[in-house]
């Protein structure tokens, strides 16, 4: 039995195969419409989510399966003080696979050690978000026709942005990748990513504070939101929330084929006017997210179309 807890749980070959299946689902959705008939997905969301939870649920429904679960910690036994270990042991009796989002880092890993069903990390605190990474990789591959030999700019909250941590970990495995990390000093990438991934694997990177100075060198610009829910101090959030706003004017300096990604939801870090720019790929990501989660559920449940 496999789980997806960390973006590196799958090899590059497995990711390529998974993305191939996701691409095929996009082209032939009917072929996959009953592959999970009779199977149940539990969505255990201890933290509010619109996109990820609905994306998982849409994915399972598209595969002919059913869904059950909860959308906030208040509506689960966690409110009564139940441990993650106990919850997952119970859920293992109700469902065939589960997706978990939790505000505490490492909660899905804890769950996977007690589960009798595959556990998918749907985001744990400011730590990792591996299914968003699969979505990002699918979108990057669709836009650039490769996953290596690129300069990736990551902008905004790089400290608490779990999608950023997962994406850096994943892309660092491909050849010719370099990163430009654009953030205020307070929101720089955590040391475990710098030490273990970037310096550890000798990946070229630079940390800068100004987006305009580097935007022309980027093949991908990955924007992120400064997340209010990750701050213990609201003053810090207010001071940092408007650090970077991507506008049509700034986009004039970017390459003609640069792709803009964003895990969404967006607040104001990408001006609405940029949505009409053909380089905006963030709504493609939402659609790709469903396809890639369908492929993931199939892979973990070891089902294939007839």
């Amino acid at each position: 039995m496999r789980h997806l807890i960390d973006p590196l749980d799958f090899s590059e070959a497995e990711i390529e195969k998974l993305l191939d299946v996701a691409d095929d689902i996009a082209l032939n959705p009917k072929k996959y419409s009953q592959v999970c008939a009779g199977k149940k997905l539990a969505t255990l969301f201890y933290e509010p989510s619109t996109r990820t939870r609905l994306s998982f649920e849409a994915a399972m429904l598209n595969l002919g399966g059913s869904i059950l679960g909860f959308a906030t910690a208040d509506s689960s036994s966690a409110a009564k003080g139940e441990s993650v270990a106990d919850t997952i042991r119970a859920v293992s009796c109700y469902a065939d696979i589960c997706a978990m989002r939790h505000p505490k880092e490492g909660a899905p890993l804890r769950a996977s050690r007690y589960a009798r069903i595959p556990v998918i990390n749907g985001g744990d605190g400011g730590h990792q978000h591996p299914t968003q990474t699969l979505t990002d990789l699918m979108t990057i591959r669709a836009k650039k026709h490769r996953l290596g030999n690129m300069t990736i700019g990551l902008c905004g909250d790089l400290k608490f942005g779990r999608t950023v941590h997962s994406l850096i970990k994943s892309l660092a495995r491909y050849e010719g990748i370099q990163f430009v990390l654009i953030s205020p000093e307070e929101l720089q990438v955590p040391d475990y990513i710098v030490d273990e991934v970037l310096k550890g694997k000798d990946i070229p990177y630079e940390e800068v504070g100004n987006m305009e100075e580097v935007i022309s060198s980027l093949d991908i610009l990955y924007m992120t939101r400064v997340q209010k829910e990750r701050f213990f101090n609201e003053e810090d959030y207010i001071r940092l929330k408007d650090s970077y706003i991507l506008t049509a004017q700034k986009m004039r300096r970017a390459k003609k084929d640069m792709a803009i990604l964003h895990p969404l939801p967006r607040v104001n870090e990408i001006a609405i006017e940029v949505d009409d720019d053909p380089r905006a790929a963030y709504f493609d990501q939402v659609q790709n997210g469903v396809y890639v989660r369908m492929a993931l559920i199939m892979m973990l449940l070891e089902v294939t179309p007839c």
Binding site: A85, K104, E105, G106, R110, D124
Partner: peptide, 30 residues
């Protein structure tokens, strides 16, 4: 922010990091 801060009966597990000498990282939150 680590699950070890709230989960009862959880083992606190650390692994020696690739940096070598005396750098240990929590397996849950890293």
């Amino acid at each position: 922010r680590c699950i070890t801060s709230i989960e009862e009966e959880i083992d606190h597990v650390f692994k020696l990091s690739g940096q070598g000498d005396h750098h240990y990282r929590c397996v849950y939150c890293e």
